[in-house]
Design a protein around this nucleic acid. Structure first.
Lengths: 235, 235
DNA sequence: CCTCCAAAAACCGTATACTGATTTTGGCAG
DNA sequence: CTGCCAAAATCAGTATACGGTTTTTGGAGG
């Protein structure tokens, strides 16, 4: 843990980012700079700067008591998917066009791991394989700005994704869509990839919305009402 | 100067961001935390954090000797426009659909200022009015994620825009495209807005590419070869 | 047992200080 | 005048320290 680059901030940032991608941080957790700092045996500043960067990128929100993973409202989900719909089908089509055998092998390997994990109901493995699949095809996108933007928008859903995969029916449908995209990649058909990605986007949006709606309802019944997340949204 | 929020980092960030939007920082300038700090009468840390944020957002790059505005390669320009083409026509169409009379008045006012500045060949005013026009129609975009992403992508071009407006012919053509978009907004025709924005995107890409190409050539002839911008690109 | 209030703790924001790396400067030799 | 080398300056990164605000805690009173 903590090797990338010779820069402490980047190292901490990468570490936290990975934890977030793996849904290893729950929205109820509080990330505190001092904790992270002496967990890694460093001072507050690098940890703080990494946290601040995650805030400015929209992954975390600052509260009066530590940093927390950002929870998406239903509007957030709709809005984020509107952007994803504009970008991902097109990007995936480009990826299909410019696909190399190496990357093709990677996405196939990731797809296999996804199906294996689905069969074993191994949610963490499913999450990880899902991330791998996405990162693999994004590698074939020649436009780094496009790839980075997409990556970022997908990562916003980490806090919801866990819930999506918890329900077997939803997970199955999600993975089915993924596998259809995978097949289209193997067929080297950019347009088929584009179309299937478009369909996938709509299905995914609905899945996330329903999961999030249920989460919000549960939270409502559990706690009558309370919340206190201040300013510091920045962006 | 330096009022927004009760937070020094945000204040410095906003100040720098504005300077960048106005092209008030040349790529040869070096932004140094200590300078900014005692220019504002504060310590290094807030200035440094603001700079770091601009780096992580891609507006600046860290060098071994201060921070500098990021210079776009021709590939960057093409890549950035590929993303803009996916987002802006659609977003503008939504803006046209959801336009309010207040915002319509704003974009008209901005458009008038653009034409006034164009007539007077007042480049700084043209730059400012152009920013205003964009910000005005983005206000009508109900999806904040969409609006923020677009805003960000547009802002990457600040270092090139100055060059675009310097050439009267290019500036005229650019502004003509803008005015056609404005007319479409006034007609409340989302599809017309969408189409015209699409055309505008292609024209703008070409304009930026040719300006940047010329800049690079000039730099080449002036200085045989040299450059030293290190790692720290982050994101 | 619950409520209210005050003391304590937690945590963020900012300031200052130190270190190491890199670049610039200035002088000395060729 | 040019090239080289060493001293000095510059600047990013990291550590430590302090102040202020908000939250939690714990006890006294109802």
């Amino acid at each position: 843990m903590l090797k990338p680059s010779d820069n402490l901030v980047d190292a901490i940032y990468a570490d936290l980012r990975l934890k977030l991608q793996r849904s290893a941080v729950s929205p109820t957790d509080r990330l505190v700079d001092t904790e992270i700092a002496n967990a890694h045996g460093i001072s507050r500043m690098p940890a703080r700067e990494a946290l601040l960067r995650l805030v400015s990128e929209g992954y975390l929100v600052g509260t009066t008591r530590g940093f927390a993973v950002r929870e998406l409202s239903l509007e957030d989900i709709s809005g984020l998917f509107e952007v994803r719909r504009q970008l991902e089908p097109r990007a995936a089509a480009c990826a299909a066009r410019d696909m190399t055998p190496e990357i093709e092998a990677e996405i196939t390997a990731a797809m296999n791991r996804v199906e294996l994990a689905l069969g074993a109901s191994d949610i963490p493995a499913l999450l990880a394989a899902n991330v791998d699949f996405r990162n693999a095809w994004l590698k074939a996108v020649n436009n780094p700005h496009m790839a980075a933007t997409i990556s970022r928008f997908i990562d916003y859903f980490q806090s919801v994704r866990l819930g999506t995969f918890a329900d077997p029916a939803t997970a199955y449908q999600y993975i089915d869509g993924l596998s259809r995209i995978h097949a289209a990649f193997l067929a080297h058909d950019p347009l088929m990839v584009q179309d299937r990605m478009t369909l996938f986007m709509f299905a995914a949006e609905e899945a996330y919305l329903s999961v999030r709606r249920r989460q919000l309802e549960e939270a409502e019944t559990a706690r009558p009402a309370r919340r206190r997340i201040q300013k510091r949204g920045t962006a």
